[in-house]
């Protein structure tokens, strides 16, 4: 860890970088200066709190506390994914189910295969990565589904009039929504190493780990993000398309 030397003083100097963003915003009259200060302020406070919480949890090293922490992460991810659903008839529990199944199945596979150990130091950061990526996939999926039901409303109506059930009437939109949810993960995996050195790998290299060893972790991360984003998108989509219909099988989209 000797390579890592971010002192408080160097952070203060790095704050100059924030000022660059503020200067751009002011010069270009973007009106973002306030937003930037709020964002930076929030980030600092959130990270300080998280830093101390993680330190405490790592020190206690208790399985139940670790699991409780993963639940908190999943709850937050679900909350944010659900907020991205433009459908006023959305249900929060559906996001929780999608996030929980996607995250725990992926996590469980990693632990069962011995790829990671059931220790807070490994489980908590990995859970955060999985749930965070899944949150983006689920949110995109919700948005695409909503757009599908609006853009292709007449097609759905037509299928309902032909005597289709909810799923048959929505299937083509659902497929597109799931695809939209998974696409960013697939795209980022395609260019991994060529364009972006992802956070996990960069972190390991930073900490002085041999890059040839660090890539193994990155490969694992690619696998798990793919699994989580596809599970999350599929489950969220299969639960939420029903929100667009009433029990008389009428479309609730004007």
């Amino acid at each position: 860890m000797k390579n890592l030397a971010v002192s408080n003083w160097s952070l203060v100097l790095a704050f100059a970088l924030v000022l660059v963003a503020v200067i751009v915003s002011t010069k270009e009259k973007l009106g973002l200066s306030k937003d930037i200060f709020i964002a930076v302020g929030r980030a600092i406070i959130q990270l300080i709190v998280v830093g101390f919480i993680l330190k405490a949890i790592f020190k206690v090293n208790n399985v139940w506390l670790t699991i409780a922490m993963t639940m908190v992460i999943i709850f937050n991810a679900s909350w944010n994914a659900s907020k991205r659903d433009p459908n006023p008839r959305r249900h929060f529990w559906q996001s929780v189910v999608a996030e929980a199944i996607g995250t725990y199945l992926t996590l469980g596979t990693l632990i069962a295969s011995g790829t990671i150990k059931l220790t807070p130091v490994q489980v908590i950061p990995i859970t955060g990565m999985i749930a965070g990526n899944e949150m983006v996939a689920v949110g995109l999926c919700y948005k695409a589904l909503y757009e599908g039901f609006h853009d292709q409303r007449q097609q759905v109506l037509e299928k309902l009039a032909l005597g289709a059930n909810r799923q048959q009437a929505s299937h083509s939109l659902m497929r597109r929504a799931i695809k939209t949810g998974m696409q960013p993960t697939i795209d980022s995996i395609k260019t991994v190493g060529l364009v972006n050195l992802p956070g996990m790998m960069s972190g390991l290299i930073f900490a002085g780990v041999d890059p040839v060893y660090a890539i193994r972790y990155q490969i694992m991360v690619s696998f798990m993000l793919l699994s989580a984003s596809s599970l999350g998108a599929v489950i969220a989509c299969y639960l939420s398309y029903r929100n667009y219909f009433n029990d008389r099988l009428q479309l609730l989209v004007d």
Binding site: A161, G163, S172
Partner: peptide, 19 residues
């Protein structure tokens, strides 16, 4: 509603084709 619509079939004023 599925059985009803398969027996009582509404043809839209401005139908759209799909697929």
């Amino acid at each position: 509603p599925i059985k009803l619509r398969q027996s009582v079939s509404y043809c839209y004023q401005q139908p759209v084709l799909f697929g």
